[in-house]
Computed example of a mutant assay.
Amino acid sequence: MSGPNDNYDPKQVAALSAESLDAIVADALAAFSAASSSAALKEARLAHAGEKSPIALANREIGALPPAARKDAGQRMGAARGRINAALAERQAAVEAAELEQALASEAVDVTLPVALAPQGAIHPITGLIDLMSDVFVAMGWEIAEGPEAEAEWLNFDALNISADHPARGESDTLFVASADGEGDSHVVMRTHTSPVQIRSLLDRELPVYVVCPGKVYRADEFDATHVPVFHQIEGLCVDKGITMAHLKGTLDHLAKEMFGDIRTRFRPNYFPFTEPSAEYDLECFVCHGASVGNPDAPCKTCRSEGWIEWGGCGVVNPRVLKAAGVDSSEYSGFAFGMGIERTLMFRNNAEDMRDMVEGDVRFARMLKGEAR
């Protein structure tokens, strides 16, 4: 039996020769250097450092060598694979850095631009319309006056010449506040109008007084399409020397023009305890413009074919009201008026259901956000 071939020279095996390994390494380095993207580098890695790459196939030849020859061949193979892996790692780092730089340049975010992190809200139409109507009076030199919503009964009724037996002072119309001990009458009500603010203004301010009083009021009303128990009013008071109904007409006509554009108005005689003479202030129907009056073929639901729509009440301040506030009615006179904010909003936008204004749906507010300046 012949012995082991101890004189075998592994350099004579072509796949394991130094020249072959150098060529394999050179091809791998060239492929890595030519790869300009992660995808291309991955293909080069599989072709030159994968399981079926030339360096892997050459490494399998070592197992067929005699033990004495494996050490020398293994050292050459280890050096070749080390060069390939080092070149691959260096090229991979360079490619990733280049791709990151390109991504940062192409996907840059301008942090100076506003970002909508949440759905955009809107000012409530009631709030916006209050501001809009208040601005009309501020531009004329009037002041904005405010007062408490839980009001003294005297200011809400007595000072306004509303007698104790007036229907408005019944529990069917007014919300009374219970006393602290739950017994007896607290003589405090949830204000039924913003007129008490007018009395407070006469008591707190020096004459003359030009104030407009927007705010929330309370009534014992049903909750339906045209009534809510909590709503908003805006009232105005002018007390000065020589004030007449003509000044009132000019003021309200200016407000109507600002709210509805060129529109006809009229005074219709009425009665209010706190003004004398008193009138309802009507607007020409902005739907039919009076064309439905006496015309059964073209009825108008908005004005019920009357041609006019009631907007609010007004009149010359009753001398008794001036006297209650300590104003000399022989020297001073004035006018007052008031209208509902919700009613004005409905007129301006042809809204049909007042309940939409209190349900808190932001879509309704966005639809009417033009009410806010």
Rank of each mutant, 00 (worst) to 15 (best):
P114W: 04
A23V: 02
A279M: 09
K369E: 13
C300Y: 08
A159G: 13
P167N: 01
A246K: 10
H187S: 12
I126R: 11
G141A: 07
S20C: 07
V115M: 09
Y271T: 05
K241M: 13
V189M: 04
D185F: 01
R219C: 13
R70L: 05
Y8A: 08
P167Y: 00
E149K: 06
A34F: 00
K369Q: 10
G312M: 02
V317R: 15
S17A: 10
D297A: 14
K323F: 15
L16H: 09
E99V: 03
A116I: 05
M77T: 12
D221C: 05
I199C: 15
Q198K: 10
G326H: 06
G360K: 04
A279P: 00
F260K: 01
G290S: 12
F223C: 14
D158H: 12
G242T: 04
G294N: 09
T194H: 08
G360A: 00
R355K: 00
I162W: 01
A94C: 00
W308A: 03
V287W: 07
I309W: 03
G360Y: 02
V209W: 14
H232G: 06
S134G: 15
T226A: 10
D253P: 09
A168C: 03
S195C: 08
A168K: 09
E153R: 14
I84E: 02
D173V: 05
P66K: 08
Q92I: 00
I123P: 05
A164S: 14
S37V: 00
I24A: 13
M1N: 12
I144W: 03
E258S: 14
R200S: 14
D356R: 07
P296K: 07
S33C: 00
L237I: 05
T192I: 11
V109Y: 01
R266K: 11
A168M: 05
L237M: 07
A93N: 03
D224A: 14
A336G: 14
T265E: 02
A351V: 10
A18D: 10
S201L: 01
E371Q: 14
